[in-house]
Design a protein around this nucleic acid. Structure first.
Length: 199
DNA sequence: CTTCAGATGCTCT
DNA sequence: GAGCATCTGAAGA
C-alpha cells in the first residue's frame, strides 16, 4: 500500500537526486519480514562521466562496477576497507554509471532492532541504542540496516521489494548544506567538488 | 576536544 | 601486492 519513489525519481541528474533524497525515509524489510526505516541526513554524488572519485570513472566497467551500469533505482552495495559496506542508489540515464552514496541517517522505525544489528548487543543492553548518531556514516548505516553485498543489485522501485524509499516530502532547500566529499583524497581535482549534501 | 593506528578482505594491476 | 567512498578505541593536549 505504501507509495514509493519510482525509477523516474532516480533517473535524473545525480546532484539533483542526491539533494532530493535528504529527509526521505529508507525502508529495509528483513528476511523475517521485520520492517526497518531511517531518514536520510547525508548523501554524496558520484558521477562516472566526470568524476575521478567514482569507481566507474571514464566508463570503467569491471565485475564490481557492473551494478553502476544497471537501471536507475538499483542498489549498489560494495565492501570497503575489508569490513564495511556502502549503500548507493544508481542514478542518471540507463547505462550512464552514476550513483548517490547514502552517508548518514537517523532511525525512524524499529530503532531498537537497528541498534541491535549495528552493535550486535544483547536485548537488555539499551545503552547502545541510547547513543545518538549511530547511523552517521556509510559503514554504520549498512550495519544497522543489515545490508551487505548480498543485497547488491536490488531493485529499489519494486513495492514488494526488500529495500525502497518513501516519497515523504521534498527537503526544505533552506536546510540543505553542501560540502566536499569525504575519504577520496586520491581523486585529484575531484576532491574539491561540492558534491556532499547534508541537513 | 584532537590525532593515530589497526582491523580486515576484496578488487584491480 | 597495493590500495581502499570506514570505524573504533586509546592516548595526548
Amino acid at each position: 500500500m505504501d507509495s514509493i519513489l519510482t525509477r523516474k525519481f532516480y533517473a535524473r541528474d545525480t546532484l539533483a537526486v542526491a539533494r532530493d533524497l535528504l529527509g526521505r525515509d529508507i525502508v529495509r524489510v528483513l528476511e523475517d519480514g521485520t520492517r526497518l526505516a531511517c531518514r536520510i541526513t547525508e548523501t554524496e554524488a558520484y558521477i562516472g562521466r566526470t568524476d575521478k572519485a567514482c569507481h566507474a570513472y571514464g566508463g570503467r566497467r569491471t565485475a564490481r562496477t557492473e551494478t553502476l551500469f544497471a537501471p536507475p533505482g538499483t542498489a549498489y552495495i560494495y565492501l570497503i576497507y575489508g569490513m564495511y559496506h556502502c549503500l548507493n542508489f544508481v542514478t542518471e540515464g540507463e547505462g550512464e554509471p552514476a550513483a548517490v552514496l547514502i552517508r548518514g541517517a537517523v532511525p525512524i522505525e524499529n530503532g531498537d532492532i537497528i541498534a541491535k544489528n549495528r552493535f550486535g548487543c544483547k536485548e537488555k543492553d539499551m545503552t547502545a541504542y541510547q547513543k545518538k548518531n549511530f547511523l552517521n556514516g556509510p559503514g554504520k548505516l549498512c550495519r544497522g540496516l543489515a545490508l551487505t553485498r548480498t543485497q547488491n543489485g536490488l531493485d529499489l522501485t519494486c513495492p514488494a521489494g526488500r529495500l525502497y524509499v518513501l516519497p515523504g516530502a521534498p527537503p526544505d532547500p533552506a536546510q540543505v548544506r553542501t560540502g566536499k566529499r569525504i575519504g577520496i583524497d586520491y581523486a585529484e581535482e575531484a576532491v574539491d567538488f561540492p558534491w556532499r549534501f547534508y541537513l
